[in-house]
Design a protein around this nucleic acid. Structure first.
Length: 291
DNA sequence: AGCCAGGACTAAT
DNA sequence: ATTAGTCATGGC
């Protein structure tokens, strides 16, 4: 009954550590030699194995599409990497981060997490998300000894929790932003499912109606939850990467300049290229990836 | 101890 | 149309 289903997936070019700890998602936690998380309200675990991934999830349903989709395990990485511009920065990033995949996240969890992310370190974002799940996430079935046992809280649960309770989770000034987002989903002013049917600029504009969601956070959601490769989040690290690697002697780089460059230069998998650059410069910065 | 973090908003130039 | 100040909190 309360037993997980296990499968081996043959997959090449999959670096779990890079994928799960590169700051695109915040709920995958180490569990022995692998990682576990709650994905779409279901407990899951993944571990690297010779020639692929050893995965398990809670329940007896052998249907694994939801987990394959989340982990992007069916995506061929080779053509993606081959599409990158052949320049020194990306060659170095691919050499260092090969096997990094973009996950396909639940839109609400992704949106809520990145609302919490502004001027926070990745390790802190993980803590905040964990506290919110512990506080208001629904219990899910998990195997014995599991590290995680609660789903990410629903919008209604966070509205009910209220701003003071969210501030107690160290959200600070982001607490009212998160509640604004949750209310918009509750009353239908924002429909995350409908965003899938909009083009990227329209979907971005819809997300940016939320107080506390600007261009960068909107692009994170578009890329990490909707797979929009024309979304290119530029945070402090990517800004540094772009300016150092591609504009080494520009004195003053405006956001508009960097955005224009990122839109034209990186090709059909620009979002992927962005994450390779992000992870690469953080690794180079020295223990940039949190413990 | 001080600087910085996967920013965004508002008000003042 | 750009720029400065502000917001909260903690890792390093």
């Amino acid at each position: 009954m309360n037993l997980p289903t296990a499968q081996f997936w043959p997959v090449s070019d999959y670096d779990l550590a890079a994928t799960l700890e590169c700051g695109q998602a915040f709920r995958w936690v180490r569990s022995g030699r692998g990682w576990e998380s709650i994905v779409g309200g279901r407990w899951a675990r993944v571990e690297s194995a010779p020639g692929g991934l050893q995965v398990s999830w809670m329940g007896s349903d052998p249907e694994s599409g939801w987990l394959r989709r989340h982990l992007a395990a069916d995506e061929a990485l080779e053509p993606i990497l081959a599409s990158f511009p052949d320049d020194p920065p990306l060659r170095a990033a691919v050499a260092r981060c090969r096997g990094l995949r973009l996950l396909r996240q639940e839109p609400w969890e992704c949106l809520a997490s990145f609302i919490c992310s502004s001027t926070k370190q990745i390790v802190q974002i993980r803590q905040i998300v964990a506290m919110m799940a512990d506080g208001w996430g629904a219990e899910v079935a998990v195997p014995e000894g599991a590290v995680l046992r609660r789903a990410f809280p629903t919008p209604a649960a966070l509205v009910a929790a209220g701003e003071p309770a969210l501030r107690a989770c160290k959200l600070g000034f982001r607490a009212p932003f998160l509640i604004d987002a949750a209310r918009r989903l509750e009353d239908g002013r924002l429909n995350l499912e409908a965003l899938a049917g909009l083009d990227t600029p329209a979907a971005r504009a819809a997300l940016m109606e939320i107080h506390g969601v600007g261009r960068k956070i909107a692009d994170c959601v578009l890329l990490f939850a909707y797979g929009r490769q024309d979304a290119f989040p530029i945070d402090v690290w990517v800004r540094r990467a772009l300016s150092r690697l591609y504009f080494p002697r520009a004195r003053r780089l405006t956001a508009a300049r960097l955005e224009a460059f990122s839109q034209g230069y990186f090709g059909p998998w620009a979002g992927y290229a962005q994450q390779y650059l992000f992870h690469y410069v953080r690794l180079e910065a020295g223990r940039g990836v949190e413990a």
